[in-house]
Design a protein around this nucleic acid. Structure first.
Lengths: 211, 211
DNA sequence: CACTAAGTGAACCGATCGGTCTGGATAAGA
DNA sequence: TCTTATCCAGACCGATCGGTTCACTTAGTG
């Protein structure tokens, strides 16, 4: 049944139904929410029969989870993997808009969306969201450490909170609030990183002098 | 709050069905979300017949809106109306937990909940949420001005973003993140208000420098 | 070509959705 | 007392929900 000689992963040799489904899910979930999107509509948009959909995903919950998993191709690589920036610059770059702005404002982070729409805290999607958020904070912390922050853990968690705050506030207000978050970030970074520590590769040669 | 025997407006003379409905809505919406709560269940919990419910609220949407309206008895009066605190202290007090913590963590701000669960940006509940968030920011700005902040508008908007960030991050992570927001707030406030004499605080405003 | 498996489209399922309606009980105001 | 308004219990409505099943088509491979 499931054994295949071709597919790299679960995919089949036929046309890519799975991808179309996940694409449709991404668009519909973003535009009208998860709970407001029915499987009938989703299949229609994806040009896929319900039968096929339920072959790829055993339930809507699983589809949601898979959808979220796909949103996380490695914790904001377009920010953290930029070798052309100093760690300090990378921290600030996390607050720059990626030009992905949807008409009508930047979209709400899909992990937050899931965390709010799904009640059960043990739902796989909720767990995934939790881990993703932790992962982002960890990356920020790591970068903060490279940048020579006094308390990298604290700064990382603070910046993560700013990202989330900007995301939901943009949603509630309908106006872009990323600049506000960026401003706070700049203040915090300036405040947390001693003046004389710009160029500092990930080689942690020595700890910063305590004040 | 409102006299029951003689409704100030139009209806009601018997027992308080309306209040029971709104109470049930508050509990259920908080515990399992808006979209996941059906009118049947709501009426059951409220000990109210569907007929009665639909006499008080013409639709579920109206109930949601009314529910939200009730959540806003004047933009955080327990914070902004405390005459015993200096403006600066009041700004910080906004980040103190009101001991309303539900088992399983502080609950998500109901306005954010509505803003995420309801798709249509023109939905009355969405509009209400938007105005509430603006109102909180305005109050913070006002207080920031009293406290002598250099740019009260900016500080108000920044602190508002922190409140929202803490609320959703608490939801996604499942752990209380208010302290993180409070820490950022302290830094921002310190940074935005000139050191020169705060308006004669009777108590020491100096706090511990964030462990 | 024959085989096999992924695909389609629509009918269908029980449950629940938001919302309506009827009939009768209850309690206060005149 | 009679009137009037509030309320309850629950049947009922069409629509939609997530999910299943079936008869059939399509496409890749040995």
């Amino acid at each position: 049944m499931t054994e295949l000689h071709k597919g790299p992963r679960g995919q089949r040799r036929g046309r890519g139904a799975r991808e179309r489904i996940l694409d449709a899910a991404q668009n519909l979930f973003r535009e009208q929410g998860i709970n407001n999107t029915g499987m009938n509509q989703l299949c229609e948009v994806a040009n896929v029969s319900k039968h096929t959909a339920y072959q790829h995903f055993t339930s809507k919950d699983e589809l949601i989870t898979e959808h979220l998993r796909q949103q996380d191709p490695g914790t904001m690589p377009e920010v953290f993997d930029r070798a052309d920036l100093t760690p300090r610059e990378r921290l600030l770059a996390a607050f720059e808009k990626p030009a992905t702005s949807t008409p009508g404002g930047t979209r709400l982070c899909p992990f937050i969306e899931a965390a709010v729409e799904i009640t059960d805290p043990e739902h796989p999607a909720r767990i995934l969201a939790r881990e993703y958020k932790k992962s982002v904070a960890a990356r920020l912390t790591e970068t903060a450490r490279e940048a020579g922050a006094v308390d990298p853990e604290l700064l990382g968690e603070q910046l993560a909170l700013l990202l989330d705050g900007a995301s939901v506030r943009t949603r509630t207000l309908g106006t872009d609030t990323d600049p506000t978050a960026a401003g706070i970030a700049a203040t915090l970074i300036e405040h947390a990183i001693p003046e004389t520590a710009p160029p500092r590769p990930r080689d942690s040669a020595g700890e910063m002098p305590r004040a």
